[in-house]
Nucleic acid binder design. Structure first.
Length: 267
DNA sequence: ACCCTCCTGTCA
DNA sequence: TGACAGGAGGGT
């Protein structure tokens, strides 16, 4: 579930469910996460759940003003699910379980690419890139980021050190909305195109967040997310289907990862 | 800019 | 059996 809108959805759904709860125990089911068990999280209170980039950040208060941050990156297949007390936890692909008063916060991750860190400082979770949903993300800011940039537009957008939160789905969608070809050289964008890219980035993300993101293989967990933005995808995963604008076939290009676009509408 | 790798699963 | 999957770090 891991692009910005999905992670935002997870954080928003989780916050009211776990904020204020105390960690009573930590269970590790994946040797990769062993170090988390050594961090003595037990006794800490979850103060807040937020999204930073594509990460979910739980702020913990350990007592006497000591704060720590549990930073979870879901990568490709990570899921965070709250199980209220009487409910049993599904065990398959369960990697980490935080026993809280009143229930459990379960981290599932089929492919085990996800990461969990415990930090003493919140800025450890900070990413170098600008969050495209923040007020600081203006057309002007985007233009400055793009200035002097090299290479193609889509790989540029995928990197997390300039803008955070965009991944393979939303890059394709945003570029389609903006009418920009994925392989356009970054340096060749006109002011008007930059403005369009800025506008569509905000619009696509806002809309996706409103629909709780995109869910493909729809797990129907009680508290898991069931996003519906997949209904609104215009090019992603639609190779050969008609472009919503010109009705020509959507093209897919595969280098390392698939890119979907309309060669006629995107220049 | 292009590879591969970390994993496990599903689908053609 | 091989291709591919929402991410990202590493190497060349």
């Amino acid at each position: 579930m891991p692009e910005l809108p999905e992670v935002e959805t997870v954080a928003r759904q989780l916050a009211p469910l776990v904020a204020g709860r105390v960690i009573r125990g930590v269970q590790i089911h994946d040797p990769k996460l062993r170090q988390v068990a050594r961090e003595r999280l037990t006794g800490g209170t979850i103060e807040s759940v937020r999204r930073i980039g594509k990460q979910v950040v739980l702020q913990l208060r350990q007592g006497r003003g000591v704060r720590r941050w549990l930073v979870i990156h879901l990568r490709m297949t990570g899921r965070l699910i709250w199980r209220a007390a009487p409910a049993r936890c599904e065990r398959s692909h369960l990697r980490l379980r935080l026993r809280l008063d009143g229930g459990s916060l379960c981290f599932y991750d089929l492919r085990r690419f996800g990461t969990v860190q415990v930090l003493d400082r919140p800025d450890g979770a900070a990413t170098a890139g600008l969050d495209p949903t923040s007020p600081a993300f203006t057309a002007r800011a985007l233009e400055e980021l793009l200035r002097g940039g090299r290479g193609q537009l889509k790989p540029w957008l995928l990197r997390q050190d300039r803008l955070v939160g965009l991944g393979n789905i939303y890059c394709s969608e945003i570029l389609f909305e903006a009418g920009l070809a994925p392989h356009r050289a970054v340096g060749t964008l006109t002011d008007e195109e930059v403005a369009r890219l800025h506008r569509t980035t905000r619009a696509v993300l806002r809309r996706a967040i409103r629909h709780c993101g995109t869910t493909f293989s729809d797990f129907q967990d009680a508290q898991g997310l069931t996003g519906s933005y997949q209904r609104y995808l215009k090019v992603y995963g639609r190779e050969g289907q008609p472009c919503p604008r010109c009705c020509g076939p959507v093209r897919r290009e595969q280098q390392q990862r698939s890119t979907f676009f309309c060669p006629r509408c995107q220049r």
